[in-house]
Simulated scan of single mutants.
Amino acid sequence: MLIWINQYLYLTVLSSISFRMIFSLLTSFFINLYFIPYIISYFKKSQKYQIIRKDGPITHSLKKNTPTMGGLFILISILISIFLYCNLFNEYIWYVIGILIGYGLIGFLDDYKKIKYQSPKGLKISLKFFWLSIIAVIIIYSIHLNLNNSISIELAIPFYKKVFLKVNYLYMFLCYFVIVGTSNAVNLTDGLDGLAIMPIILLSFGLGIISFCSSNVFISNYMNIPYLEKANELSVLCTAIIGSGLGFLWFNTYPAKIFMGDIGSLSLGGSLGTIAILLHQEFLLLILGGIFVFETISVILQIIYFKIRKKRMFKMAPIHHHYEIKGLSESLIVVRFWIISLLFLFIGILSLKVN
């Protein structure tokens, strides 16, 4: 919207990328800060509480009267910032909007069904996976059509200077696993107060830096990342996610007053996976989002180990529940996972500039 206003007022500052990044962050932050208390109050009055798993840690029974679906306002605040500050003529923005809304609707239906039927199961896993896949395929095909003019697609390889992996049709399969995998990885991680939202903020920060640098031919060359002329608008979108995440974290820290629910975790995870694809940083995503990879691998190992040995490798998966059952306090686990996530961010950014 500011881009359109600037066409009539001729105020250069309104179209400045740094100006729009800052105000995108502040807008989404203050929207959450102002409105979430009203959402918490409304959900408590209507008794829209988080449904606690019966097979989960005993301490989680204390969370049974905590409202859920806080991700609804995360999405709303992000979308408002996007429409206010992003250049809507940039197709990259619409790919991410498509994932945010599509995955948000799936998450909403999943959360709504849990509340309505007072069951932690929600949508059938097969049905949820089917719709996640359909939306991912539509977005990936749209991106692929836009890239048809290029001879090949080059993926940046972390820690290797000027080394890019050229891919063709396999790229679409890779993109599918990135979007659906990241979405589910964030969903798995969202099990403790504030555990998922801080890594989301840090991952958004890392992708925001890369998107800002990718649109400058000199900086991208120095940073060892592909030059992408249209990528700078994604940095405005990333700051919207950061601001919204910080506003939500204000109420989601231990003891949480509200949970994001699947509506937040599925849509945010899918959108970050999509941004990584648009930046050709699918492999770097594994480093920047290392905490999500760590949590997902723990679930996979638990399943495989149990099928082979008929024993559990961890006391409970994902692994944050393992430490919880071992007696570590929830806040201690969360802060330590935040620290690990921050270290992954540093490693990922440093891997871009190698001699």
Rank of each mutant, 00 (worst) to 15 (best):
S351R: 11
S152A: 02
Y38A: 12
M223W: 09
F251C: 01
L288H: 05
K307R: 15
V180G: 03
K310C: 12
L228M: 11
L11D: 09
G70S: 05
G247L: 09
A156H: 05
Y160F: 11
G264H: 00
A156P: 00
S41V: 10
G107V: 11
S61C: 02
G270V: 09
Q50P: 03
M198K: 01
Y42A: 13
I99S: 07
L234T: 01
L266M: 07
N65H: 05
G273N: 06
M1A: 10
I93C: 02
V96A: 04
G269E: 04
N90F: 03
V167E: 03
A276F: 01
S150P: 00
G70T: 02
S265Q: 06
M69G: 01
G290Y: 03
Y42N: 12
L272C: 06
S16R: 06
V137W: 02
H280V: 00
F159G: 07
L288G: 07
K44S: 15
L100A: 10
Q7W: 07
A231K: 00
D262L: 01
L207M: 14
E91R: 12
L272I: 12
I51R: 02
A156K: 04
I138S: 04
A185M: 04
F212G: 03
H280M: 12
G264Q: 02
L246A: 12
V178M: 09
I179R: 03
S215M: 07
Y222V: 15
L155W: 08
I40K: 05
N216W: 13
A156L: 09
L33W: 13
I80A: 07
F83N: 10
Y34P: 07
F35Y: 11
I349R: 08
F35C: 10
I97M: 08
I39E: 06
K124Q: 15
N146M: 14
D55I: 05
K44H: 15
V163I: 13
I340G: 00
G104F: 03
K230W: 12
L202A: 09
Y112F: 12
L202M: 15
I287R: 00
F251A: 11
I200H: 06
I297S: 03
I325P: 04
